[in-house]
């Protein structure tokens, strides 16, 4: 079932973000460019949680794998952004494949705990392998003449990188909209809703879940690759548990059951954080309270408002008829 309204809402928000970036200063353009890279992370969590049935608390590790892949690959592939992003997707997909194979046979809550252990373990390993990751100081992106299919691109928190991220995200969202109307996506939904029922119909539920989780890893990896290009620097905190928790919050605020909710959640939380930082240092407390409010009064996130409004409208119509 294609969610055309969801697609239009998310693409409109993306377009508004790009237009806004042309009107505001360099700082905010950089903030928005990073936000777009995190949108990939939020979408990847939703995909893992809602379609692979893996409540992955290690999505930032997968995101970080993509980011480090770009840092490591940059000198070897002479600034070819297409190849760098391909490397980031492969790295994200490969890490997700390993994580998926480890946690897939666990129960739902078991998988959540399993991914927490993996996230912490990889964070500690990253901290220990300073030569490879740069530890808390991180590693800078090598200075190269970056180009995308021959078109020169300046890496960094600028409008060019914001547009590149937004275009890739728009393609991803439109691609998801297309796939969600196809038979293959009905199988994915069937597996997600009732794995045993799908198995009895002849579908290999485990294979479908792992495939979706790997795709979510590729998306997180791509976001990580873009993040490395925007930030020109990646530190070990990028793959930490707190980053993974943020991805869950973004997805929850946007609407955990819709991948179109991710962009809304990222913008709502990150922009609120940036604005609040100008007046108070207790940003985390305020964001935390906002999230409690969302959990209490908006459990389906912003995208869930549509269903709620539709229900209200139908109740009012029914009341008028009677």
């Amino acid at each position: 079932m294609r969610d055309t309204v969801g697609l239009i809402v998310s693409l409109s928000i993306l377009l508004a973000t790009c237009l806004l970036a042309t009107l505001i200063g360099e700082f905010w353009t950089g903030v928005l460019a990073r936000c777009v890279t995190w949108m990939f992370l939020a979408i990847s969590f939703t995909l893992a949680y809602s379609y692979a049935n893996i409540p992955s608390v290690a999505q930032a590790t997968v995101f970080g794998a993509g980011a480090y892949a770009v840092i490591w690959a940059a000198p070897a592939i002479a600034g070819n952004i297409a190849l760098m992003l391909l490397a980031s997707m492969i790295a994200g997909g490969a890490v997700a494949l390993v994580f998926g194979l480890l946690v897939l046979r666990m129960s739902h809550s078991g998988a959540a705990i399993g991914t927490i252990i993996l996230a912490v373990a990889f964070s500690m390993l990253g901290n220990a392998a300073i030569g490879l990751t740069g530890g808390t100081d991180g590693l800078p992106l090598a200075s190269e003449a970056f180009h995308l299919f021959g078109i020169p691109i300046t890496a960094g928190p600028n409008i060019g990188m914001l547009l590149l991220g937004a275009v890739l995200l728009a393609i991803l969202l439109a691609g998801f909209w297309y796939i969600s109307g196809r038979r293959i996506w009905r199988i994915v939904r069937a597996v997600q809703q009732n794995a045993l029922r799908a198995q009895v119909l002849g579908y290999n539920a485990v294979a479908y879940r792992i495939a979706i989780y790997v795709i979510s890893g590729c998306i997180a990896g791509l976001g990580g690759g873009l993040y490395a290009l925007v930030s020109r620097h990646v530190a070990i905190e990028t793959i930490g548990l707190s980053m993974s928790l943020k991805s869950i919050l973004w997805a929850a605020v946007g609407g955990i059951s819709s991948i179109y909710g991710g962009p809304i959640g990222v913008l709502a939380i990150q922009l609120a954080s940036e604005v609040l930082l100008r007046w108070t240092v207790r940003v985390d407390l305020i964001i935390g309270l906002m999230l409690v409010a969302v959990a209490l009064w908006l459990p389906q996130g912003v995208m869930g408002l549509r269903t709620r409004n539709a229900n209200w409208i139908s109740t009012i119509k029914q009341w008028r008829r009677t």
């Binding site: 009905r186 939904r189 069937a190 029922r197 009895v200 119909l201 579908y203 539920a205």
Partner: peptide, 30 residues
């Protein structure tokens, strides 16, 4: 179960196990 299904073993469930948000035609297609 999926390999048994492909060898010709079909089953129904004690509690109707259908998929939310899908039509009859889509169920038959699955």
């Amino acid at each position: 179960p999926q390999k048994r299904a492909r060898l010709g073993l079909a089953r129904t469930f004690q509690i109707a196990s259908l998929f939310r948000g899908m039509t009859i035609a889509e169920h038959m297609e699955l």
